[in-house]
């Protein structure tokens, strides 16, 4: 099995080096004439006010958490789908229970307006 991952490992190294080599070549070719105006933050020509690292709304956090939960659910279902032909009818109901419990969570989130992007 490991030899299947040899190519992935080598590809990972090459894929990581490829953009770096490109930037390296560009670094040799391109002009380097920085000045304060060029290096200033781009905000359509208006002076930047305050810190760029602003506070974000809880909505992002909530979406991320709902995502984590469903991501884990789908990861659990992938091996089940592969084993599907080998399991019995009862096992299918167990998986359905698994999905339905989490679907209940989705309905709860819906009812509590957690899915609204305000």
């Amino acid at each position: 099995m490991l030899d299947q991952y040899g190519l992935i490992g080598v590809l990972a190294i090459i894929a990581f080096l490829f953009p770096f080599v490109g930037v390296g070549i560009a670094w040799m070719l391109r002009p380097k004439r920085p000045d304060p105006i060029k290096k200033s933050t781009y905000e359509c020509g208006i002076e930047t006010i305050g810190d760029a690292w602003v506070q974000f709304r809880a909505q992002y956090y909530l979406i991320a958490l709902i995502f984590v939960i469903f991501d884990i659910e789908v990861i659990f279902l992938f091996p089940f789908a592969v084993a599907f032909e080998q399991v019995g009818l009862f096992a299918v109901f167990e998986a359905i229970l698994f999905v339905v419990i989490l679907a209940g969570g989705l309905i709860y989130a819906w009812k509590k307006n957690a899915l609204e992007w305000q």
Partner: peptide, 22 residues
């Protein structure tokens, strides 16, 4: 694009800024 000047803005976090496109 290879011969374009590459600007890293003054307040940027240099390493993360360069690592992201890679």
């Amino acid at each position: 694009l290879f011969t374009k000047e590459d600007i890293t803005p003054a307040g940027a976090d240099r390493i993360t800024f360069n690592l992201a496109p890679t």
